[in-house]
Design a protein around this nucleic acid. Sequence first.
DNA 1: AAGATTTTGACAGTATGCTGATTATCAGTA
DNA 2: TACTGATAATCAGCATACTGTCAAAATCTT
Lengths: 147, 147
Amino acid sequence: MYDIEKSIGFLLAKAHQRGWALFSEEISRFDLTPPQFSVLAFLWQQDGLTQTELSEKTQIDRTTIGGLLDRMARSNLLERRPHPQDRRAHLVYLTEHAWSLEPELTCLAHEVLDRFTAGLSESDKQQLRQMLETLRGERKTYATTAA
Amino acid sequence: MYDIEKSIGFLLAKAHQRGWALFSEEISRFDLTPPQFSVLAFLWQQDGLTQTELSEKTQIDRTTIGGLLDRMARSNLLERRPHPQDRRAHLVYLTEHAWSLEPELTCLAHEVLDRFTAGLSESDKQQLRQMLETLRGERKTYATTAA
DNA sequence: AAGATTTTGACAGTATGCTGATTATCAGTA
DNA sequence: TACTGATAATCAGCATACTGTCAAAATCTT
């Protein structure tokens, strides 16, 4: 017997599904999707990365992030500039428009997250974060500009 | 500032991503995907459901489960039979082949889950299950044959 | 019974997310 | 310098997952 309803894999998928749905509903008016918001959030921290670097930071597959950046460029959120030293690579930069959205979207993301996790206490949330980090697995650490 | 790396939504997505990858790797030799395994697990519990009932139980979108069942039928895992009372509906039944896979796949799923959650204690896992249930949100309860 | 509403499943369209192959370029080596 | 291997990004192909639309059939209402 396999009680799928009790399986952490299944529950993870369904919790993720609900989080995605809640967040999608809120950010769709900005023509954004949850992964696109993630990319924005990483680029707000640091701009001018290659697609491969962005792929490693966001843990989004190289081939997936290609199309994702295409759509974000089409929405005037970012642009690709040639890499000065490497003609194979592109550097990804946010547009003024993307920068201007930062305060509002940051606030919105916090609100939605609070609503999503309304059933959990602060210590629950901290424990959950740690457990999810554990499940996420060990990853290479990447040098940050400001260590 | 939005620290996306600490966001429960983001961590949920990445933990889910890793669980999916681990499980995929193991069940791909059965030509199965994680959602397809979920459908199997629900059908092992109860057979002969309509697509809509199955969609509600598995929390997989009506339109998504259509194609999913197509592919599973193509792999000789299930078949659709006409509903005796409702000519719009189909009843989904597992094949002998699907039934024969139950012991092996159940065992494999437990193994992979144990490996996935190796970093967590038993009480951690129980807490995590409860928190994920909370995040998953309240759902309608469906009558089961054996209440 | 006749008309309105709902439900079931299909289809089109779009976005993620992956594998595998390909092209262009870079870097190291004989 | 020419060859070899590695790397950056794209493309094709497939499987989820959702929205919206539709036809057929069931159900409710009058």
